[in-house]
């Protein structure tokens, strides 16, 4: 291979070569390590070149998916969507005289919360768990995202069927916190499944059979739900470090 004479390399480095000369030298330098090693570009020229490169040109457009993922991981989206759908169905039946919304509202967020920190429900869980952001703050951020979608749907629907927010909002928050609290012990997904199943079996089922709301969901029980919320929150904070490791269970 013919090499570029040192004098030409020097003038190229100074930015003095132009047109076809510059193009030929550049093409050769791209493939020849020995000539490249003779190329010493002065800092001043380098700085000029860098300042002319528009870094903004290579910057990707702000991605909607990434911005959304900062709040809720994509793995949570189908579960949140499902919950919203079930809520809407509950309201339709409530208009026909049932009280499903109040009965189901407490467990509405748990599916989305489960997907926030679960090996089985989030395909990227393991690499996420290894990042510095993994921890209670990330899990809370994702939990808030679930509530931020759900509550704006529940509030007007609840009002539509005449249920007082005190009847379902506190139970809803208590179940959310309890899912995380129990999740620090047995894994969030198992906690969600366990709490939801218990609620359906012991409260929703019997209420549908007797066609009356249990005392637990009367406004007078608000104090109990508040205490449940507080206890669960304390457990979550005390055991927060479990959210910096791989989720237990699935």
């Amino acid at each position: 291979m013919t090499h570029v004479p040192p004098a030409l390399i020097a003038s190229y480095a100074q930015g003095l070569s132009t047109g076809i000369d510059a193009a030929v030298i550049e093409a050769h330098l791209g493939t020849c390590a020995s000539c490249r090693s003779k190329l010493h570009v002065p800092d001043k020229v380098l700085d000029e070149v860098w300042s002319e490169i528009d870094l903004g040109a290579t910057r990707p457009r702000d991605s909607v998916l990434v911005r959304a993922a900062v709040w809720a991981s994509p793995a949570m989206v189908p579960w949140i969507a499902m919950t919203v759908l079930v809520t809407a169905v509950a309201v339709v039946t409530d208009l026909l005289g049932t009280q499903l919304l109040v009965l189901l509202a407490p467990i509405a967020p748990v599916a989305g919360v489960a997907a926030a920190w679960s090996r089985g429900m989030d395909p990227a869980h393991e690499i996420v768990a290894c990042t510095p952001r993994a921890g209670l703050d990330l899990v809370l951020r994702r939990t808030i995202a679930v509530l931020a979608v759900l509550l704006p749907v529940l509030l007007p629907l609840g009002w539509l069927i005449g249920a007082s927010p005190a009847q379902w909002l506190l139970p809803c928050l208590a179940f959310t916190t309890a899912t995380l609290a129990l999740g620090t012990l047995i894994g969030v997904r198992r906690a969600a499944v366990g709490l939801a199943t218990t609620w359906v079996a012991f409260v929703v089922g019997p209420s549908l059979v007797t066609a009356s709301l249990p005392a637990l969901l009367e406004p007078s029980s608000a104090g109990l739900w508040l205490i449940a919320c507080a206890v669960a929150a304390v457990v979550v904070v005390l055991r927060a470090s479990t959210f910096t490791r791989l989720a237990s269970g699935n």
Binding site: P60, L65, V70, A75, D122, P123, A124, C130
Partner: peptide, 25 residues
């Protein structure tokens, strides 16, 4: 870290996925 079972979000583009991981890091 690249785990043995590398799970990912299939609707993300290559750039979006790596960008999201950079944010998590």
């Amino acid at each position: 870290y690249l785990p043995q079972k590398f799970g990912y979000y299939k609707r993300f583009t290559v750039r979006e996925f790596v960008e999201y991981m950079a944010w998590l890091k």
